[in-house]
Nucleic acid binder design. Sequence first.
DNA 1: CGAGATAGTAACCGAACGGTGACATATTGT
DNA 2: ACAATATGTCACCGTTCGGTTACTATCTCG
Lengths: 101, 101
Amino acid sequence: MRIRTATDLGAFIRERRTTLGLDQISLAKKAGTSRKWLVEVEQGKPGAEIGLILRTLKSLEISIDLEADSSVATPPPGKPKAPDINSVLDSLKTRPLKKQI
Amino acid sequence: MRIRTATDLGAFIRERRTTLGLDQISLAKKAGTSRKWLVEVEQGKPGAEIGLILRTLKSLEISIDLEADSSVATPPPGKPKAPDINSVLDSLKTRPLKKQI
DNA sequence: CGAGATAGTAACCGAACGGTGACATATTGT
DNA sequence: ACAATATGTCACCGTTCGGTTACTATCTCG
């Protein structure tokens, strides 16, 4: 996926996370960060630095591409995980089942 | 170029900058940042946030690719710039003409 | 040699970040 | 209905970041 903004980055991370069947806590722990930070990134909040990076690359006309290494779900060898239909649906809906009022 | 560390990122930015015949001040101004920050990034100093981003993407097995949009030097239309042989040499040497002692 | 340009470095400082912990909301399963 | 899980949000706070402003070193050109 071509990344242009912090929102792009957040969307891609979230999509990949749900596809892998991970919750925010698990990923935060894996990455050595906090859930708060992950929430902000997934929402596209441009932290100071990432904003500067994106602007710099733009100034240099450099494009950023992110790619999930293995097609759909490739949990680290040894952890089958079996993300069933639910996680796939989640990744499609990003969680719009909220209230619908 | 496949980006794996902050050092990769810095090297790529610096290479692209010199290829375009820009000095740190010009790029910093273009990107809306400071020369200090640019120096640190080019040296591969992983700011807090970029480190987290890289770790997160790694945790999700996402790969990052950077690509200079136009082959060699494509200054924004209207600014020919004409980077002569010198900048090309610079990009090859990264500035090892220092002292050589 | 001297002037100019570019890059690396340092100290200072206000602002923003990132972590922690708690709470609210929403969805799922029993 | 209830508990459990997951996400979003908030306040607090220590740390670090990023900008500014010097100063130095190196290289180039006249």
